[in-house]
Simulated scan of single mutants.
Amino acid sequence: MSVVSEDHQPLTFDFVDDGLVPNSKMPFLVYKRAIDVDNDHPEKTIEGLFGANGWGAMWRNGVYDYLHYHATVHEVLGVARGNAIVRFGGDNGTELAIAAGDVAILPAGTGHQCLSSSADFSVVGAYPPGPPAEITRATPENHAKALKTIPNVKLPKADPVMGTNGPLVKLWKRG
C-alpha cells in the first residue's frame, strides 16, 4: 500500500467552540492525497492502513448531510472514491473539498457535515480503541454534556496514516 512520505505534513485547522459545537483545542488534521487508492479495492487499502495503525472500529459509507460530532471518540475519515464538500468545525467552520486518497482526522467534538458529494463518494471511517462512537447533534443540551466527556477521551497511540511517529502524536496534546 502506498502512503505519503514520512516528511509529508497534514494541513491543520483550529476551530473554536461556537456554543453548539464544542470542537477541540487540538487541531483538525487533513492529509491531501495521502493514500494511493488507484486500485480495484480502495476501501480495503484504507482499512488495511487504519487497522495497521490501531484504528480498528471501522465502517464504510459517506458523511451525514446534517451537522454532528462525536463527544466520546476521535474519528478518521479516509476517502476511497469520489469527492465531496464537507464543512468541518460547525456552521462557522471551514468548507473543504476532499477527494479520493485524502484523510481527515477529527479530534472528539469536531463538527462535520457533508454539503455535496459525487455519486460515487465513499468513505472509510475508523476510531481508535475506546468507547463506541455516538452521533451527537448540535444542541445546547448536547453541548453541555460534551464539554464533560471530551476531556476524558484518550489520546490515540498512533496517527492513523503515519503510525506511532506520525504528526498526530506530536500535534495532539492535552493542555
Results as ranks from 00 to 15, higher is better:
172 W>F: 02
77 L>K: 04
117 S>Y: 08
121 F>I: 05
173 K>A: 11
146 A>T: 07
1 M>T: 13
80 A>W: 06
71 A>V: 10
75 E>M: 12
156 P>M: 04
119 A>P: 08
162 M>P: 02
7 D>S: 14
6 E>N: 12
91 D>Y: 07
51 G>F: 06
148 K>R: 14
15 F>M: 00
127 Y>E: 13
57 A>V: 05
33 R>V: 08
88 F>S: 11
38 D>K: 15
140 P>Q: 04
46 I>C: 01
7 D>Q: 11
107 P>R: 13
131 P>G: 08
128 P>Q: 11
152 N>Q: 12
51 G>N: 14
68 H>V: 08
89 G>P: 07
100 A>M: 04
20 L>C: 07
143 H>P: 05
31 Y>T: 08
29 L>E: 11
151 P>D: 05
145 K>A: 15
133 A>C: 07
106 L>K: 09
121 F>Q: 07
143 H>A: 11
135 I>R: 07
12 T>D: 07
170 K>C: 01
14 D>C: 04
116 S>D: 12
124 V>G: 15
159 D>E: 05
34 A>Q: 05
144 A>V: 14
90 G>I: 00
8 H>P: 03
69 Y>D: 14
157 K>A: 13
170 K>L: 03
76 V>N: 00
106 L>E: 07
165 N>W: 03
40 D>V: 03
60 R>A: 12
171 L>S: 01
50 F>C: 09
18 D>A: 04
51 G>S: 15
51 G>P: 06
96 L>M: 00
110 T>C: 10
67 L>G: 15
87 R>D: 10
11 L>A: 03
16 V>T: 09
29 L>N: 11
36 D>I: 12
103 V>L: 04
135 I>E: 11
